[in-house]
Write a protein that binds this DNA or RNA. Structure first.
Lengths: 253, 253
DNA sequence: CGCTGAATTGACTACCCTCAACATGAGTGG
DNA sequence: CCACTCATGTTGAGGGTAGTCAATTCAGCG
């Protein structure tokens, strides 16, 4: 299928490899190129820049930086965070391969979030001005980008609901299920995975203290719905976890 | 400037008047037409549909409805809400004149929120397909719509921070300040206004019970930062309210 | 005039935060 | 190799904020 593509020295076996095109990227069915015509995928590919991987703790960009690009995560994981009026950090999201960060910067031409690598991560930089120009020529790209931003909105609203209505246990369960389903979208195990973020990040994201996060993990393990070994998570009772996330067994009255 | 426009029987004095064009709408400096060329404003105007006003409690659309349009609020106020997995309502936002709702529907071609009028309200319907077509011809409209969605994202993230990090008092103070500043953007008083939503809606939005909302209003009144008379709010100490919203006087250590 | 729904206020309770001690593992240098 | 520090995570005890339950007030309305 890609037989007439130039042959790279490295194949796509290394997830941090820079020599990947959208056409042969194994994420292209869930990332930006989704539902684009094959010719359009190549046009998109040509505006994308792939830099060297970020190391754990590296900033992709900082809040206040001039906005130029959005970024698709290609490997690894990153967190986005804002600084509140009080000067406290608030983690606003975790982004896994195939997901796009930076759309908060469009509104005012500067990023409102900082994005930091949680582990070694590589990203595809999409210069926004060129993406806009391309969107005018490829209506389905325009549509797709609108959808991407809309999805970010609905996801943020789900977090709002989570923070507004759910107990600590429900929040943790929901986060685990979110990561689980995003992993399975990438053909990875839904039941066993490694959390890329620290307990501190989880607590910050979910509006809980690190102690509470730790206690909930222990409690979920006692209830035999998950097994925890540091950052390794094994969901042993998916239905049970799902029930917990949705307010305990069929709504305790 | 608009001398060659057809003369309407009613002028723009009645805020619910259907016979308004973007060109002569008093909101056009803060609404969608912002920063558009005057010719482009008229093109935008021609795709916009203005229906009869909504009465209090009327649905503009319901979660699950097929997505066709986004809506600019022209008068009155509406709330958006989702139904959580548990079946509970979660108010995800309040929208005042000049603001746009419905962008959550783009992602999956159906709305994830329902939108309900909090009082008599009129809206401008913007058919999304036609807006997309127009965006291809008017790049600044495309840009503007990206910015609009980006702003929705950053606002939702501010709510996330509020719910994650702030006390009940801080949340209420922040909401009052948000409404205050949005009023002043419309040339209305920043210090005195009428809340269009009920205590129940406020509590739902901010993740608080109605009793707590009521108590906080009373407490803020005791502290002489606001005066409350049912839904009428008078901010008597703007700086004080601002300090409360930002974590008490210069961060109590 | 009574009814209904919204709001206020009080008393009690529970969940989660705070403070604290302790455990674990990685990295450093003797 | 071991002692040391530092960062991260776990567990326990106690307290505070906001939720729950309940009674009361008030406005709107048939």
């Amino acid at each position: 299928m890609n037989a007439n593509q130039p042959i790279h020295i490295h194949d796509t076996t290394c997830p941090h490899d820079r020599k990947v095109s959208c056409g042969n990227c194994r994420l292209n069915s869930i990332c930006l190129p989704i539902s684009l015509h094959i010719d359009d995928v190549e046009k998109l590919n040509q505006i994308i820049q792939r830099g060297k991987p970020l190391q754990k703790g590296d900033y992709l960009y900082r809040a206040g930086d001039a906005f130029d690009s959005v970024y698709a995560i290609r490997s690894g994981a990153v967190k986005a965070l804002t600084i509140s009026d009080r000067g406290e950090e608030q983690v606003t999201g975790f982004y896994l391969p195939g997901e796009v960060v930076g759309m908060d910067g469009i509104a005012n031409n500067c990023y409102t979030n900082s994005v930091i690598a949680l582990e070694t991560a590589s990203v595809c930089e999409i210069p926004f001005n060129r993406m806009e120009e391309l969107s005018i020529k490829i209506p389905s790209l325009q549509r797709h980008f609108f959808q991407l931003m809309s999805r970010e909105i609905t996801q943020d609203q789900q977090i709002i609901t989570l923070l507004s209505k759910s107990s600590a246990e429900e929040r943790i369960a929901a986060l685990l299920l979110s990561i689980s389903s995003r992993n399975s979208r990438r053909q990875l195990s839904a039941a066993a995975f490694r959390l890329p973020m620290s307990r501190t990040d989880i607590g910050n994201y979910l509006g809980l203290t690190i102690e509470t996060v730790s206690r909930i993990f222990s409690r979920l393990q006692q209830q035999s719905v998950i097994e925890v070994d540091k950052k390794e998570i094994h969901i042993t009772n998916m239905d049970g976890l799902f029930n917990i996330a949705n307010g305990g067994d069929i709504c305790h009255p």
